[in-house]
Design a protein around this nucleic acid. Structure first.
Lengths: 199, 199
DNA sequence: GTCTATAGACGGATAGAC
DNA sequence: GTCTATCCGTCTATAGAC
C-alpha cells in the first residue's frame, strides 16, 4: 500500500475518533490500532498529534467546501441552499445526538485547551459563515447578510448542543421547522421572483 | 482547618479547573497544586476523580438553584425573570468568550467520553429548563412553556459556542437584544397587566 | 544497495489509584 | 510515597521493491 493511501486512512480514522471521543481523549495508540498499524510505523507518517489534527481539520475543511458547493449548485434558489444547511441537523441527527456537532465541539475543546490549532478549527466555522453570508447576499440581504449568517450558525450550534444532552428528536424537528419559518420571514418581498432567476 | 473546609476548597478549585480546561485535561495533580495539598492528603478527601466530578456537579446545581430562586424573587414579572437569564450572556461574556458555557461544555465533554456522570451533568441543564418552563407558565404560556424554555436554552447555548469561537462581543449583544425581542413577542396580550400583579 | 513502509523495543513523563 | 498503566515520542531493525 502506498504511503499516500496509509496517510489518508490515518486521517480518516483520526477524523472519526476526534469526533467520537474528542481530540484529547484520543491517543496515538487508538488511531494506530483502528488503522491496523504499529505505533512505530505510525510515526513514519505523522510526527506529532498536532500534525494529525492539522490534517484532520484540513480534510474537514475540504469536505465542507465541496458539500456547500454542491448544495449551492443543486439548489434552485439561495433560500433552498440555506434550507439544505438547516437540514443537516435532521440528516445527521443520530450522530449529533451521540457526539454533537463535529465543528462546534472541536472548536469548544480546542478553545479550552488553548490549543494552537484553535484558529484553524475556527476557520471551519468561517467556511460555513462565509457560505451562509453569500447565500443571504444572493437573497437580497446584502446589508445584514453576515448577521443573519451568524444567527443561523448560532441556532444550529445551540440545537446540536441540546440535542446531545437531551437526545430528543422531536426537539430537533421542532427547531428545524422554526428555523425554516424564520428563514422564510427573511426573504425580502422584492426577491421572491429572483429565486427562479439564474445568477 | 477542618476537613469540611478543605473538601469545599478542593471542590471549588476543581469547579474552576474543569471549567477552564475541561474535565479530562485537568489532573489530580493540578487540583492538588492549586489547593496547596500533597497528593497523599488529597486521597483522604476524594478517592477518585469521578467522585470530585460528582461533587462539582452537585455544587453547581446548588449554586444554580440559588441563583435562579434569587432572580425569580427579585423580578417584578416572569418576563423580567427570563430577561435575567438572557443577561447571563452579557454578565459572563468575558468568561464565556474564553471557556464557553460551563454547563454546555461540560455536558458536551461528558457525552463524548460517554461518562457515567453524563446524566448528572444533564441534570444541570434540566434545572435551567424547569425554571424557564415555570417562568413561561407564569407568563401564561402553559401549553408550550417547555418548548419555549428549550428554545431559549438552545439560543443561549448557541450564542455561547459562537462567542467562544469568534470572541465577538458585538455578536453577543446583538443576539441578546434579539432574544429580548423574541421574549417580548411571546407575552400573551392578556397577561400584559399580569406583569405588575403579585402572584 | 538504496529507498520505502513497516514493526517493535525503549525512554521519560505523567496519569489515576492506593 | 509508591504502584501500575499509559501517554507521547525516539530509536533501531527488517521486509520487500526497484
Amino acid at each position: 500500500m502506498g504511503a499516500g493511501e496509509t496517510r489518508a486512512q490515518i486521517v480518516d480514522v483520526a477524523d472519526w475518533l476526534f469526533y467520537e471521543r474528542g481530540f484529547e481523549a484520543t491517543s496515538f495508540a487508538d488511531i494506530a490500532r483502528d488503522v491496523g498499524l504499529s505505533r512505530g510505523n505510525f510515526y513514519y507518517h505523522f510526527k506529532t498529534k498536532d500534525e494529525i489534527l492539522g490534517a484532520v481539520i484540513a480534510l474537514r475543511k475540504a469536505k465542507t467546501k465541496a458539500m456547500l458547493a454542491a448544495w449551492e449548485e443543486r439548489a434552485a434558489s439561495p433560500a433552498e441552499s440555506i434550507r439544505s444547511f438547516v437540514h443537516i441537523l435532521l440528516m445527521n441527527r443520530a450522530k449529533i445526538m451521540a457526539h454533537g456537532c463535529p465543528v462546534g465541539t472541536l472548536c469548544a475543546e480546542l478553545a479550552k485547551l488553548d490549543h494552537a490549532a484553535r484558529v484553524e478549527a475556527n476557520g471551519l466555522l468561517d467556511v460555513f459563515r462565509a457560505w451562509l453570508r453569500r447565500q443571504f447576499e444572493r437573497l437580497g440581504r446584502e446589508s445584514d447578510a453576515d448577521t443573519l449568517a451568524l444567527h443561523l450558525l448560532m441556532r444550529s450550534q445551540g440545537v446540536a448542543t441540546l440535542a446531545t444532552a437531551f437526545r430528543d428528536e422531536a426537539f430537533i424537528r421542532r427547531e428545524v421547522a422554526d428555523m425554516e419559518a424564520w428563514l422564510a420571514a427573511q426573504i425580502p418581498a422584492s426577491s421572491t421572483l429572483e429565486a427562479h432567476r439564474p445568477d
